[in-house]
Amino acid sequence: MIGWDWETAFLWVCDMELIINGEQQNIPVGTITELVEYKRLEAQSLVVELNRAIIKQEQWASVQLKPGDRLELLSFVGGG
């Protein structure tokens, strides 16, 4: 394959319906890594929960998202 494959092409034409931080969003991504890149998030400080299960950063590239998945994108902030 040179530069693209059918899976990538499919994802580009089909937005996926995800529920991110309680909000329904249509996003053309397949994995959590792609989602993080698409949203231009700072990966280092990001905590990802997928359908109530924490997904560690090492697994982001291998976890395929499915339509209707519920994601929480979290980070640590100042607090007392």
């Binding site: 998030l41 990001l46 979290l74 980070s75 640590f76 902030v77």
Partner: peptide, 9 residues
């Protein structure tokens, strides 16, 4: 202490 919050886009 630290707190955990949803990211603000």
């Amino acid at each position: 202490t630290v707190a955990l919050r949803r990211i603000d886009n």
